[in-house]
Design a protein around this nucleic acid. Structure first.
Lengths: 203, 203
DNA sequence: GTCTATACAGGGATAGAC
DNA sequence: GTCTATCCCTGTATAGAC
């Protein structure tokens, strides 16, 4: 848009991308600027030209990740069948993690660990939006009569999100434990989870 | 047992305890030996007298945490009612986290993040034991005819563990999001979760 | 905008006195 | 067993030339 130069792939974005990958993989404290610099093929001093500090760079990375995630959740096909809509939501939510693992690792880590307040502010919104969307879906299902009135939508939304977060973060280790369910594709896992839950909440 | 000296509260265990608290709160890389030393009222050199290295200290802390957790899961009242037994298991599992937060943070972090292979070996067993116990309970319920045959025990076990882990790690942030379910006590949360799931798996 | 060189603090780890 | 003092390295961050 702004620049007509091509092929340069400017340093700032190279730095951002290297930082995202490394922070996602190892966490904030385990990543040094030396590592980021060499990984981005840039001098360390150059990082400070583009970003005020290490933490500044980190927050910039988080900001981008959160923004990118905002697009990806997208909109679901608005069907009248709430079984389908819930299944679609759960699938899409989990796909969003699995298809963008670095970004997701970053956001989930910050959300769960929540050591830096600024970081939490950035990621909390993302989770809140998903959560609210899901709660609303459940409430609509209750009003429509397809879902029973007597369960707490918050609770069920939590159950779904928790199942997905757990799959994303623990699946490698769970496979080593020998839990065959984690050999399933994300979609299949998601469908099975929803199947159980739906049985518990249908009228 | 060995020593008749009292009141000394020997340095080694002071170090271990300080390290456990700090590692649990901030993670391995964010904690320096200086901090541990001052927190345990011990010189930095003294840490190296008792432990070969920082990572050695960390693994020792993990080992202790895993061992302590092994006791705490305990045995459940063996009732013939599988509704009750599942509810009891879920409650106890979550209590085990909430009543020993530092230990639990340590183990859960290592399990989910799983950066160090040695650490994972130590924590994986704990999770595997809980998981297997739960799966067996579900299988027995199926054999007894109280639970339907057509669900995957792995899946339901995962759902329960995921719900608990999520509650434990995310409850503070989830409260800020405004999810009223996270205002509930752990026991109440656990019971509500199980109620939904049971509806989904009963005959 | 990008680099080399450098400053300075703090990291983990060791030596050696007590 | 515990300390003080020290080593050496790597960390973040800055100065200043190009």
């Amino acid at each position: 848009m702004a620049s007509t130069h091509v092929g340069t792939a400017d340093a700032a974005s190279r730095i951002l991308q290297a930082a995202e990958t490394l922070f996602a993989a190892k966490g904030y404290d385990a990543v040094s600027l030396n590592l980021i610099a060499s990984s981005a093929a840039v001098s360390k001093a150059n990082i400070f030209h583009h970003f005020r500090s290490k933490s500044d760079l980190y927050f910039e990375v988080l900001r981008n990740a959160a923004a990118a995630s905002r697009v990806d959740v997208g909109n679901l096909p608005a069907q009248s069948n709430y079984d389908e809509r819930l299944a679609a939501f759960a699938r899409q939510h989990l796909r969003n993690y699995v298809n963008h693992p670095t970004r997701a690792r970053l956001l989930v880590r910050e959300f769960l660990d929540g050591t830096a307040q600024i970081g939490q502010l950035l990621t909390r919104d993302e989770f809140a939006r998903n959560f609210d969307q899901l709660v609303n879906l459940l409430k609509q299902g209750q009003r429509s009569g397809q879902l029973r009135d007597s369960f707490d939508p918050d609770l069920v939304a939590t159950l779904i999100i928790a199942a997905n977060v757990f799959y994303f973060r623990a699946r490698v280790t769970m496979r080593q434990i020998g839990a065959p369910i984690f050999e399933q594709t994300p979609d299949a896992y998601s469908d099975l989870i929803i199947e159980i839950i739906l049985r518990g909440i249908r009228t």
